[in-house]
Design a protein around this nucleic acid. Structure first.
Length: 117
DNA sequence: CCACTGACTACTT
DNA sequence: CAAGTAGCCAGTG
């Protein structure tokens, strides 16, 4: 049984469309925990593999990739560019263009747990 | 329980 | 825009 925060975060991350990105903080907020950006990063670390998450679509509030060069940075950048996301010369993404925001009809419905006993 | 660490953020220089 | 500082939350030893 996962925490509500985790479930919602996973759902939000999975819902990010191609060619769009979300910041850690925004994701945490949508999941119900403003300021829980670090927890989101932790989730990507531990759940991305298992839950097949589009972890590369999550970047920091500066529109930058938080990973260190030759340590994931290159991969994430490549994956995003492959989806049509453009990077500035300073290696940043224009959040005013690529930041994804769930519409007002986006319902953070975590009912997926109804089958637990 | 305390101390340390981290794929974070916001503010100030 | 880069660098330093403080606040933040949760996992780990």
């Amino acid at each position: 049984m996962l925490d509500i925060f985790t479930q919602r975060a996973l759902k939000v991350i999975k819902a990010i469309p191609e060619g769009r990105v979300l910041t850690y903080g925004r994701t945490a907020g949508l999941a119900g925990k403003p300021g829980g950006a670090r927890q989101v990063s932790r989730l990507l670390h531990s759940m991305s593999r298992k839950h097949d998450l589009p972890w590369h679509r999550v970047i920091n509030s500066q529109g930058r990739i938080s990973l260190k060069p030759s340590h994931g940075y290159e991969l994430q950048k490549a994956l995003l560019e492959d989806e049509g996301v453009e990077f500035s010369l300073s290696g940043r993404v224009d959040l005013s263009v690529y930041l994804w925001e769930p519409g007002p009809f986006w319902d953070i419905d975590v009912i997926g747990e109804s089958g637990s006993s």
